[in-house]
């Protein structure tokens, strides 16, 4: 049986188990990023920091898509007729998340422009100050 992963230029006994562990650890890190980002959104008082926290959270989500795509293999999914490269990564989640990255980027840009305008009225950019300023 061919090993789906190539670590240290070859397949060693016990590598599959090793990689399962590695995937689990990576998954834990990805979720830590998502949750860390969300706590940033909740706990940071400054709207700028909240937006950056949201970016951290979206990085976590993107990483999760990449991780799931690599469950079955890690080789770039470009078909090569001449050589067999082993297991390919799943291209669908990668293609999908590309759309989400672009959308996320444009949303960030819009929000930052909005914050620049708001900073003229509320220089502290503190969420409580902003809400007292604008709530009717």
């Amino acid at each position: 049986m061919r090993c789906p992963y190539r670590v240290n230029n070859g397949c060693r006994v016990g590598t599959a188990h090793h990689l399962m562990m590695l995937m689990a650890v990576l998954e834990a890190f990805v979720f830590a990023t998502v949750i860390g980002g969300f706590f940033g959104i909740l706990l940071k008082k400054n709207i700028m920091m909240k937006i950056i926290s949201m970016d951290v959270m979206s990085t976590g989500v993107i990483a999760y898509y990449v991780l799931v795509a690599a469950r079955g293999g890690v080789f770039t999914p470009i078909l090569d007729e001449t050589a067999n490269h082993g297991a390919y990564a799943d291209p669908v989640p990668q293609a999908v998340i590309l759309t989400a990255i672009v959308i996320g980027l444009s949303l960030q840009a819009l929000m930052l422009v909005g914050v620049m305008k708001i900073a003229r009225d509320v220089p502290t950019l503190d969420i409580d100050d902003i809400e007292t300023e604008y709530t009717p």
Binding site: I41, L107, G114, K117, I118, Y134
Partner: peptide, 17 residues
Amino acid sequence: TNKSIWVGLRYLFVSNT
């Protein structure tokens, strides 16, 4: 107006999260 930008920003933030 800055107020309408805040209303929009708040919407964008909540929905994107």
